[in-house]
Simulated assay, not measured.
Amino acid sequence: MKRYFQLGEVFSYFIRVFKKRDPNNPDSFNLRMMHGINRISIIMFLICVIVMIVRALTR
């Protein structure tokens, strides 16, 4: 059960997506677009969480 709640890989992906490209890893157009879309969705999610927290605190 403990294995299902480990979030280390998830957080490492969030950090990795915002880093500059590693020249040792293969690069393709599809991979760059996927990381770009993931950056946008992570930023939108964080903005929405902040808005929800602010709304909850101001009620």
Rank of each mutant, 00 (worst) to 15 (best):
M1P: 06
M1V: 09
M1H: 12
M1N: 07
K2A: 11
K2Y: 15
K2T: 06
Y4V: 13
Y4S: 10
Y4H: 08
Y4R: 10
Q6W: 08
Q6N: 13
Q6Y: 07
L7W: 00
G8F: 03
G8K: 10
E9W: 06
E9G: 03
E9I: 08
E9M: 07
E9P: 01
E9T: 14
V10W: 02
V10Q: 01
V10S: 02
F11K: 07
F11Q: 01
S12L: 12
S12D: 10
S12F: 01
S12Q: 13
Y13W: 05
Y13L: 11
Y13K: 14
Y13A: 03
F14W: 09
F14C: 14
I15Q: 15
R16G: 00
R16K: 15
V17L: 04
V17S: 07
V17Q: 02
F18C: 07
F18H: 08
K19M: 12
K19R: 12
K19P: 00
K20H: 06
R21V: 08
R21M: 11
P23L: 07
P23E: 03
N24M: 07
N24F: 04
N25K: 15
N25H: 07
N25D: 00
S28Q: 01
F29I: 09
F29C: 04
N30S: 15
N30A: 14
R32N: 02
M33L: 12
M33E: 09
M33K: 15
M33Y: 08
M34W: 13
M34D: 00
H35I: 05
G36T: 11
G36L: 08
G36Y: 10
I37T: 08
I37L: 14
I37F: 14
N38Y: 00
N38E: 11
N38Q: 13
I40A: 15
I40N: 03
S41K: 14
S41Q: 13
I42V: 09
I42W: 03
I42Y: 02
I43C: 15
I43Q: 05
I43R: 05
M44A: 15
M44I: 04
F45H: 11
F45G: 12
L46S: 08
I47Q: 03
C48N: 13
C48E: 06
C48D: 07
C48R: 14
C48F: 08
C48Y: 09
V49S: 10
V49R: 10
V49T: 11
I50R: 11
I50V: 12
I50Q: 05
V51F: 04
V51W: 01
M52E: 08
M52F: 11
M52A: 12
I53N: 05
V54H: 04
R55L: 09
A56I: 00
A56G: 10
L57R: 07
L57Y: 10
L57N: 10
L57C: 07
T58A: 00
T58I: 13
R59N: 09
R59C: 07
R59D: 06
R59M: 11
